[in-house]
């Protein structure tokens, strides 16, 4: 199946293909030898920041595809995953095979520490936009998602709902909003930087006076909406809102007129992975159409795989005004972002 797909891609996207040739490697293939070696190792350990239900489902799908190899899913928030990897590797404990977080800065750090293995799956080299993987082949964009405004449609009428970020400063939303924290959530860190570039810090200074309920993870604001604790989220994961909508919770997404911040979640194989072959096999599975389609259908995540078909009713990325992440700029500004945020929001 992959061979046929590859042939079609090679024919139809010849331009992108030749551009990618600049990168010396073509990516590794899943060979019978690799599968056999992976099976001998028997386990792959996946440190991930994706919602636990989505990550567990992905693991089960892999286990069905390659019987005899167990996936151990270790889920925590991006910053916690990062902290754990840092703790473990710097003290010589090698537990993790594959790592994935939603903060692109982490992977720059990992790379600087030489903690990542080189080599990407064939599919990434062929299908992914060139700017969505590391030129040295150490990591690639496994998923993307947005940080969105959303509201309870049974508590706020559509015509009253905010249309953009500036509308959130209206006094009528005082005490009505919930938002996640940039010091905890990679998604919100990325979004905060993008919005501060666009609207300046005055925006956050004013938002801080709106008595916003502060939660930590970007998965949390949608759940506070579902509980009815607040009718409006100033930011939060788009994919958790999709999942609520699928569950029948009356929630609606607003793609702000000013733009919606996009966050890229990278994945990589660790250089000292205890199960190197299983890691390679699992890593290539992560970028397969099957896994990417599953992330989209079940998890509400966005994919860079051109073959992924999004569920009807979800606004396609091309129709949304996006604020693209700027990893280098963000990395330089980290301390300032956190200090400013604490100044305006108290934590």
């Amino acid at each position: 199946m992959w061979g046929k797909r590859a042939a079609i891609i090679a024919l139809t996207s010849a331009v992108a293909w030749s551009a990618n040739l600049a990168y010396a490697q073509d990516g590794y293939k899943v060979t019978p030898e690799l599968i056999e070696a992976a099976r001998k190792e028997g386990t792959v350990v996946f440190y991930t920041a994706t919602d636990v239900a989505v990550a567990e489902k992905l693991g089960k799908t892999f286990e069905e595809e390659y019987p005899g190899i167990k996936v151990q899913v270790e889920r925590a928030g991006s910053e916690r995953v990062f902290q754990r990897i840092g703790q473990e590797l710097s003290t010589g404990v090698y537990n993790a095979d594959v790592v994935e977080t939603s903060d692109a800065v982490h992977f720059q750090m990992f790379k600087k520490q030489s903690w990542l293995a080189s080599g990407l799956p064939e599919e990434v080299i062929k299908e992914w936009p060139k700017e969505e993987y590391d030129p040295d082949g150490q990591f690639a964009a496994y998923r993307a998602h947005l940080s969105v405004i959303a509201y309870r449609s049974d508590m706020i009428k559509e015509e009253d709902a905010p249309k953009g970020l500036a509308d959130l400063l209206d006094p009528k939303w005082k005490g009505k909003m919930v938002k996640a924290h940039p010091g905890y959530s990679g998604t919100i860190m990325t979004a905060t930087y993008a919005i501060s570039k666009l609207l300046g810090w005055e925006y956050f200074e004013k938002l801080g006076k709106q008595e916003v309920m502060q939660v930590q993870s970007s998965t949390e604001p949608p759940k506070k909406l579902a509980q009815g604790e607040r009718p409006l989220e100033a930011d939060g994961n788009e994919y958790n809102v999709f999942r609520l909508i699928d569950d029948g919770v009356p929630v609606k997404i607003v793609y702000a007129t000013e733009g919606t911040p996009l966050t890229v979640g990278n994945a990589a194989i660790l250089a000292k992975a205890p199960h190197p072959n299983a890691a390679k096999l699992f890593y290539s599975f992560l970028f397969s159409l099957k896994a990417q389609q599953l992330n989209s259908d079940f998890g509400g995540l966005r994919s860079f795989h051109p073959g992924v078909k999004e569920k009807a009713g979800r606004t396609p990325l091309k129709d949304i005004k996006l604020l693209m992440p700027d990893v280098a700029g963000q990395e330089a500004e980290l301390e300032n972002i956190k200090a400013k945020y604490e100044e305006y929001f108290g934590t």
Binding site: E79, F82, M213, Q214, V215, G346, T347
Partner: peptide
């Protein structure tokens, strides 16, 4: 309880110091 209210106590402040970069 304190973080949603928008204030830190010593422990949560210390905890925030372990955020990236620690």
């Amino acid at each position: 309880l304190a973080l949603p209210a928008g204030f830190h106590v010593i422990t949560t402040k210390i905890w925030s110091l372990f955020q990236f970069p620690p």
